[in-house]
């Protein structure tokens, strides 16, 4: 252990070789469920101000990556730094949109209330949200165009509205980096474009957005940065350079193009059980 790597009292800071100042940098990250790797030795740097998609087959560890980044899962090895610091020091700068079906929508609460939850942490113990917090939450609701639904019970929302509620809850935190777990899952086309517009608006304001995504056909349209993940990182970088047929085949175990099986080679015998929709890629 060389002394210059030891910046904080107990936290080892990993130097990265990227030629940008990454907002998110995963270094040799390994996450395992009971000694079964879900993510294997990933090195990933995300530059500021991009809209990034994490793409890969089912069980590739996409959601695991986000959860490990947010300390929701223990790491078997490696580190993740946000703005050069560990997560616990920069919580306020990171927003999180979990998968929509991770909560019980029959919970007795209103849309405004759910959005206000995004501010609970900044309030500290015992203090209750007041007028200021409500106003902030209303502003966030206006951003996702749900201001007319503020008083509504959350089970009365459509899937798309629920997703936008979660989005507003993250927006109200006014973070610099957002993690979103499948925000486009099971929403109608209209909602999808509305959500996309919000994400693009975030990008123009200089925020970074990391999105777990499953629809290969829209990747090129939606994102400007992409990470191809299948337990280990296949590639990451600008969409134009990374989102190529060869690398996609490699990610999906060579099963995307059925005319040319296994051209990605390697251990591709372990076939993907979720052939992606974009078979023509």
């Amino acid at each position: 252990m060389s002394p210059e790597t030891r910046r904080q009292s107990d936290i080892l800071i990993h130097e990265t070789a990227a030629d940008f100042d990454p907002v998110l940098s995963a270094n040799d990250l390994t996450v395992a469920y009971d000694a079964k790797p879900a993510i294997w030795d990933i090195d990933l740097q995300v530059p500021p101000g991009v809209l990034m998609g994490i793409v890969g087959p089912n069980g590739a560890g996409k959601s695991t990556f986000i959860k490990a980044a947010l300390n929701l899962l223990p790491r078997a090895g490696g580190s993740i730094l946000f703005f050069g610091k560990p997560y616990s020091q920069v919580r306020n700068r990171v927003g999180y949109v979990p998968q929509r079906d991770s909560v019980d929508w029959d919970f007795p609460t209103t849309v405004l209330d759910v959005v206000t939850m995004g501010l609970y942490h900044s309030l500290g113990w015992i203090r209750r949200p007041g007028r200021r917090e409500r106003d902030l939450a209303m502003t966030a609701l206006e951003q996702v165009k749900l201001q007319d639904f503020a008083g509504r019970q959350i089970s009365q929302l459509s899937g798309g509205q629920q997703q936008r509620t979660f989005l507003a809850r993250a927006l109200v935190q006014d973070a610099d980096l957002y993690f979103m777990d499948e925000p486009f899952a099971a929403v109608d086309a209209l909602t999808e474009s509305a959500i996309l517009a919000i994400l693009q608006e975030l990008r123009t304001r200089g925020k970074t957005v990391v999105v777990v995504h499953h629809d290969l056909q829209t990747v090129a349209d939606y994102f400007d940065w992409v990470a191809l993940l299948n337990v280990s990182l296949v590639a990451s970088g600008p969409v134009s350079e990374v989102f190529t047929d060869e690398l996609i085949e490699l990610t999906y175990g060579g099963r995307v193009n059925s005319l040319n099986p296994g051209s990605g080679g390697g251990v591709g015998a372990a076939s993907s059980d979720s052939a992606p929709h974009g078979a023509s890629l």
Partner: peptide, 11 residues
């Protein structure tokens, strides 16, 4: 389901 872990195309 994973590709070989050898770093390839890490761009």
């Amino acid at each position: 389901k994973a590709p070989p872990p050898r770093k390839r195309g890490q761009i």
